[in-house]
């Protein structure tokens, strides 16, 4: 009798354990700044963009914003426009993954103005462009940027028989209206590995 009860109890316990295991979620949320994000050698991961943007912003703040080197027109805040950011890597991605982060953080400093209308190709905000053009026609003035941000992302890959290495070089330049470079920075992110892995 006791043996039967014990057997049933053990079976029940095992079933509970197994059921709990089966009900574990297959998908889980991970913080975007977690060390458990997936990292792989063959492409730039989201954490790489965040890291590159972070180091670039720190450099711009330290060398340009903190020193007051960026000047606007008639004592106003300098206007920063985004020029061409070339992706020279083997993977396709939207360069806004880098640029938007930089732009957002620079705008937050309160020392620089950024724009959605003065862009190289198409306006980011067509309605704002229309309004700007109307305003320019009324006031007979023209909004011009004081600085432009341009850059390039380059990939250098090396491999041995069992190890791959990719270096992603982020090159950014801030130019003034005369075409002179007021700030330049290069940041490298190098990754080694054999296959996609979790974390770094």
């Amino acid at each position: 009798m006791i043996k039967s009860i014990l057997t049933i109890a053990l079976t029940g316990t095992c079933a509970v354990f197994f059921m709990t295991g089966c009900s574990a979620p297959k998908t889980q949320y991970v913080d975007s700044d977690s060390s458990r994000l997936i990292a792989n050698v063959d492409e730039i991961n989201i954490q790489d963009f965040a890291r590159a943007a972070d180091e670039m912003v720190q450099s711009i703040i330290e060398e340009c914003i903190s020193t007051g080197a960026l000047k606007g027109t008639n004592g106003e805040k300098p206007i920063l426009a985004i020029s061409r950011i070339v992706n020279n890597t083997s993977t396709q991605f939207d360069t806004d993954l880098l640029v938007k982060r930089i732009r957002t953080e620079l705008l937050r400093t309160g020392k620089v103005l950024t724009t959605t209308t003065l862009n190289l190709d198409t306006s980011e905000d067509p309605l704002a462009l229309e309004a700007m053009q109307m305003e320019e026609a009324i006031q007979q003035t023209r909004l011009v940027h004081n600085y432009t941000l341009s850059g390039k992302i380059i990939e250098v890959t090396t491999r041995t028989s069992n190890l791959r290495q990719s270096t992603y070089e982020f090159q950014l330049t801030l130019s003034d209206r005369r075409g002179l470079n007021v700030w330049e920075e290069v940041k490298n992110i190098t990754k080694q590995g054999k296959r996609p892995t979790v974390g770094f």
Partner: peptide, 9 residues
């Protein structure tokens, strides 16, 4: 908080 928050390896 910042959009640049990241854990640097």
């Amino acid at each position: 908080s910042s959009p640049l928050d990241n854990r640097t390896p």
